[in-house]
Write a protein that binds this DNA or RNA. Structure first.
Length: 867
RNA sequence: GCGCCUGUAGCUCAGUCGGUUAGAGCGCCACGCUUACACCGUGGAUGUCGGGGGUUCGAGUCCCUCCGGGCGCACCA
């Protein structure tokens, strides 16, 4: 036990206790002699190391920490690891800007490379100003920067007081993670769950990579309808009679047109099905076909199918078995060579004017050409329509045909879909309604999960391809590494049976250059952290996990993909509970985001207000509920700070009374307080078990204020100046209550409660036993009157009110006070009359039974102040 | 288009199974240096529970409907 300071304060507690916890290993996961039932395991979200932390992180990670601390105090061995999601695009972008470089895989490695600058100013560096570096140099810079970023993150998490076992941390780009992701992938391939396909793919032209359905978002964009003349081949071919009018928002894709399509029931176009038309400008003959996805009420009711303008084009192209006539390159520009189908001189000339242009410029050029040829009908009508974007991108996605790796996700497998939905029902969601989002997502899956990315800093896809006699890769026969060989980098490692000299030569092999989507690694966090295929004993202790905490925005990505991988690998749910935190909204109720400039740095908040205060704010919001936060006026944080300070001061005060005679609680008021507290303990425990940490906090907090404002005031005279058993009773009750409060509040205010605990007990409050109501009823007796404190409190309010009304100090003596109460209450009140008289400085206190509804002061006579 | 959440005091939010007079904190007003706490304490005022309809002895709570706010999924010529 340590001495109580003269002036307890919050400042410095983070550093003081953070150090002690680290030294004592307070949060260390102890597996010695553990069994699965004695463990509480948490599948912690690995934050994106290269991103900046914002208040939203503090919010949701605090939610999880309160649960971790509660479970630890319940006697569970808590497995609470921390991972860093350091691979992927965010890191690449940050490295580009931080060091002023860009990856060019064609360049050779430079030993001892020094980047052009370091630190940057946070602004993005233009691509033209970035120095091209080799892939290996680029990855080295990624590694260097993420290690630094992760250190800062860890410092912040430690200051916030997350009770993470830091010896269990992992990086998604670390060797063990690489090995586990590749191992899982290889097994997916072996079981037929991972495959490659050449197919139209959503493509980000800025990052030049394919993206998956889960990473899409719709954004409203300006667009325009253009009405084009298509010429019927059975007419003269000249503009005019018999032309078909087609509305399109993508006129630049006209050279990629492969057909026109209308609904089979559309009588206007039924006569044309089976005939052909010629495209404007390019004079390509295309069929008129029928498909049920064509909407008669859209545009002119007949659409042009291009390869590829949108995902519907892809469906039509596939289902109607149309030819491919791609014009868009990976860079988002029209390719230099016109499609072969464009044969006419005029058509090839027209295309030559588009070649090399961006989509935007090509659109303008086509419009001009169409206007010149008279094949554009009427006005161009501008509209606003949703367009698919990569969530991290800022240019619309295009669709290009590429070879990619996929993992089956039930889009084409009804039985798997049923299993995934069943798992969704089996999982305990907090709050419950979040399950719907999962179901929406699973039911809306339109294609398998595209996991290959044409990027650099990620887990390499661990395959090689044999090269045939002509030096062409045989993609259908990928060479997989042996499990014992993992992790591998196919760019530098050599497959079994080959030598490095055979790389890239006919009859030899080539390595896959793509890396995995970051979610392909993150979807394995239960495996990565839990020692899957590395530490079977650990895995058996923690898996399936008890809790997956996460934000609502990544249900379709992280939650879904983790559940999927677990189903594929283990055939079962990876966790029992999912705790979904809400958003942080700024005062205008808009989601906080960097671009809006309303992000506050958590480090500054913790520094200014103290960690306990910030945690209080976070913990007072329920799971799944958005919380408003105004950095200019952080009300909840101030309230939390007040609570933490109050805890320190109340403890100091209560522990200051002479405890020599402590032992039994005999006074009715003391017993009442303990009985009330016992109820709070029961309810708070129930709330925590139901993943309602906010209610547990509210219960503890509100009773704590009653304890301070009423009980402590009522008994301080007795505890300080009283004698014998009545004094001992008060002191015993105060100490018992304090011990309970420190523990009830420990999950929320780990610093203040630890400080207070250190004044009265050995060890850490965070490894102490979660309070039991029985501790209190043992002291207070089973028949204690929990209501008494409230009755006395009501009388006290009456006395105080009278003094306030008289504009007198609370210490003003009272000559006479008459308290009236209902018959039954009056008798009980008399049991605490002495305490009430003492705090009110009442010379003569009369308690009368009367026909009133509630306790009230009927008459009061204050002693006159000096005349 | 399908669906989920949400609307309670000026603000942020509780309100359990339908049950007495709807709560808390902040803010506001007034008072008070009272054995810890001025980063404090005491007291007070404050409501069309979004609107309408229904069920019920009784509705903030259940049902229907309309309106507002937020979000998910789908659509994308």
């Amino acid at each position: 036990m340590s001495a109580i300071p003269d002036k307890p304060q919050l400042e410095g507690l983070e550093a003081k206790w953070g150090k002690v916890w680290e030294e004592q290993g307070t949060y260390r996961f102890d597996r010695e002699g553990a069994d699965r039932d004695g463990v509480y395991s948490i599948d912690t979200p690995p934050p994106t190391a290269s991103g900046s932390l914002h208040v939203g992180h503090v919010f949701s990670y605090t939610h999880t920490d309160t649960v971790a601390r509660y479970q630890r105090m319940r006697g569970k061995r808590v497995f609470y690891p921390m991972g860093w999601d350091d691979n992927g695009l965010p890191t690449e972008r940050r490295v580009q800007n931080y060091y002023g470089v860009r990856c060019d895989p064609s360049l050779p490695y430079v030993e001892g490379f020094v980047p052009p600058h370091e630190g940057g100013d946070g602004k993005s560096v233009k691509a033209a100003d970035q120095q091209p570096v080799s892939r290996r140099n680029f990855i080295e810079l990624c590694e260097r920067l993420t290690v630094e970023d992760e250190k800062q993150f860890e410092d912040l998490w430690r200051t916030l007081g997350l009770s993470v076992d830091w010896s269990q941390s992992y990086r998604t780009i670390g060797d063990e993670s690489l090995r586990a992701s590749q191992l899982a992938f290889v097994r997916n391939v072996q079981r037929g769950e991972a495959y490659q396909a050449q197919a139209p793919t959503l493509w980000d032209v800025t990052f030049r990579t394919a993206v998956a359905q889960a990473e899409l978002e719709d954004r409203d964009q300006p667009g325009a309808y253009h009405t084009l003349h298509f010429h019927r081949t059975d007419s003269s071919g000249a503009v005019g009679e018999g032309d078909l009018l087609i509305d399109t928002t993508r006129p630049e894709l006209l050279p990629a047109c492969v057909a026109l399509v209308a609904h089979p029931d559309d009588e206007r176009y039924q006569p044309l099905f089976g005939t052909t038309v010629r495209t404007p400008l390019f004079d390509v003959e295309v069929p008129v076909v029928a498909h049920h996805l064509a909407q008669p009420d859209k545009g002119t009711g007949i659409a042009m199918i291009c390869t590829f303008g949108d995902v519907t084009d892809v469906v039509w192209w596939r289902e109607l078995q149309l030819p491919s006539r791609s014009v868009l390159g990976f860079d988002g520009r029209l390719v230099s060579e016109a499609p072969e189908a464009i044969e006419s001189e005029a058509g090839r000339e027209a295309y030559a004017q588009l070649a090399g242009k961006t989509v935007f410029s090509a659109k303008q050029a086509v419009v001009e050409l169409l206007q010149a040829s008279g094949e554009l009908s009427g006005e161009i009508r501008t509209i606003t329509h949703p367009v698919k974007f990569f969530e991290k991108g800022d240019r619309p996605l295009e669709i290009v045909s590429t070879r990619q790796w996929y993992i089956t996700n039930s889009a084409h497998d009804e039985a798997l879909r049923e299993r995934l939905l069943a798992h969704g029902r089996e999982l305990d969601w907090h709050p419950e309604f979040m399950r719907v989002r999962y179901e929406n997502w699973v039911e809306g899956l339109s294609g398998d999960w595209l996991i290959s990315r044409q990027r650099f800093f990620g887990v390499p896809i661990p395959v090689w391809y044999p090269l045939d006699a002509d030096g062409n890769p045989v993609y259908d026969e990928p060479i997989l590494p042996a499990e014992s060989q993992l992790p591998v980098d196919p760019s530098s490692d050599v497959p079994a049976g080959y030598t490095e000299a055979q790389r890239g030569v006919a009859g030899g092999f080539q390595g896959e250059v793509d890396v995995m989507d970051t979610w392909a690694t993150s979807s394995l966090t239960p495996q990565l952290a839990g020692g899957w295929e590395r530490d079977p004993e650990l895995f058996g202790l923690v898996y399936p996990y008890d809790l997956r905490p996460q934000g609502q925005d990544i249900i379709r990505t992280w939650l879904f993909s983790t559940l999927l991988r677990s189903e594929l690998e283990e055939g079962r749910l990876p966790w029992r509970h999912a705790g979904i935190s809400g958003w942080i909204l700024d005062p205008d109720r808009k989601k906080m985001s960097k671009s809006k400039g309303n992000v506050v740095t958590p480090a500054g908040m913790l520094e200014q207000h103290g960690s306990d205060a910030v945690r209080y704010w976070a913990a007072s919001a329920k799971l799944g509920t958005d919380a408003a936060f105004d950095p200019q006026n952080p009300t909840q944080i101030k309230i939390g700070r007040r609570l933490a300070i109050k805890l320190l001061n109340a403890a100091k005060f209560a522990l200051g009374f002479d405890a020599a005679g402590a032992g039994l609680v005999t006074e009715p008021l003391d017993r009442s307080m303990l009985a009330g507290l016992a109820r709070v303990v029961e309810e708070a425990t129930r709330a925590f078990d139901a993943y309602d940490h906010a209610r547990a906090l509210e219960l503890a907090e509100s009773f704590f204020w009653t304890f301070c404002d009423d009980y402590l005031e009522l008994v301080k005279e007795r505890a300080h100046g009283g004698e014998g058993q009545s004094q001992a009773s008060a002191v015993t009750a105060l100490r018992a209550a304090l011990s309970i409060f420190a523990r009830l509040l420990a999950p929320f205010l780990p610093y203040a409660s630890e400080e207070v605990w250190s004044w009265m007990a050995e060890g850490s409050v965070h490894t102490a036993d979660w309070p039991l109501a029985s501790e209190l009823t043992a002291l207070a007796g089973d028949d204690a009157d929990a209501e008494l404190l409230g009755l006395v409190g009501a009388a006290l309010v009456g006395v105080r009110g009278a003094k306030t009304a008289a504009k007198a100090s609370q210490k003003t003596p009272v000559e006479l006070a008459v308290v009236q109460a209902p018959e039954a209450s009056a008798e009980r009140l008399r049991l605490a009359a002495a305490d009430l008289a003492a705090v009110g400085r009442i010379a003569e206190l009369r308690i009368e039974a009367a026909p009133v509804d509630a306790v009230a002061v009927a008459e009061i006579r204050l002693e006159q102040a000096e005349a």
